[in-house]
Design a protein around this nucleic acid. Structure first.
Lengths: 146, 146
DNA sequence: TTTACTTAGTTGCACAAACAACTATATGTC
DNA sequence: GACATATAGTTGTTTGTGCAACTAAGTAAA
């Protein structure tokens, strides 16, 4: 069917995720400037734990689209930063349930504020209906490939 | 002005680039299956060299949105794979001009074909006008943040 | 021409991703 | 219960990114 929207020059940005890379860099800078000692990847794990803590590493894999080794190491580093704790499940000894520390709970409001701020800067001047179309397309892309 | 399009659940995908990550993974798999021993990042450098070779590492930085150390190492690895050569500029001894080897020239058609194929799979079922809006929004995002 | 400044590229370090191979625990079947 | 199989998580290796600090080479001004 060849959806031939993509002449050469346009192919590149889609594959490399120019826009999302720019967003992530901007947010990382905001974290650094605010003295938050936190990577975007670590934040993305906390993001899901703020919604619901006490979930397994496997559930974090599914939520963050990462493989198991990536989550193992992110949880390692978050534990070193004293932001999460691994707690072995009572029912199933294979499973680690991940809980937030008090310190991590304190980070939620500030970091989510910076993330929202970043997106507002990114989408300044973009009309709401176009944002909606864009979100829709990106969701379809993900669904087509997952 | 608070472009409040972003409730919590939607914020995440934008920051993490879910869609572009999925595209890159799919393309990497296609490279692997085709026996192309090439990372997406290496391909993204070749991509610009196929358009114009003999450019400097700094120009590759600008073209690929990477910093100098990243390009240094990508060129290192491409050199090890015998896909590019560094040639010191005659006029300015600080500059390395990057040239493609014959082997790299052979990769262009096949890898670009796989990239196009990937995008067609990603955008299957997405109407052309929506793709256009999406491209437009992503470009604005990039311009707003760069 | 000596000094200061700028630009191009490299190196070291910490962090992260993808893959393969591994351990430990659980489950299902005979 | 003993076996095979599946699932959860870890470790090793290669590759890439971002930052800071560095070297080498070019430029400009005294």
């Amino acid at each position: 069917m060849s959806n031939n929207q993509f002449k050469k020059g346009e192919l590149y940005s889609f594959v490399t995720g120019k826009a999302s890379t720019a967003i992530a860099r901007r947010l990382q800078k905001k974290f650094n400037n605010a003295g938050l000692n936190l990577t975007i990847e670590q934040w993305s794990v906390l993001y899901h734990l703020w919604k619901q803590e006490g979930i397994s590493q496997q559930e974090l894999c599914n939520a963050t689209f990462r493989d198991k080794p990536s989550i193992t190491r992110l949880v390692d580093n978050l534990e070193k930063l004293d932001l999460v704790k691994r707690v072995a499940s009572e029912n199933d000894r294979r499973i680690n349930l991940i809980y937030l520390t008090k310190q991590a709970q304190k980070l939620q409001e500030q970091s989510m504020g910076l993330a929202e701020e970043t997106l507002n800067e990114a989408l300044e001047t973009v009309p709401a209906d176009k944002i909606d179309v864009c979100k829709e397309v990106l969701q379809i892309v993900y669904d087509n490939l997952k």
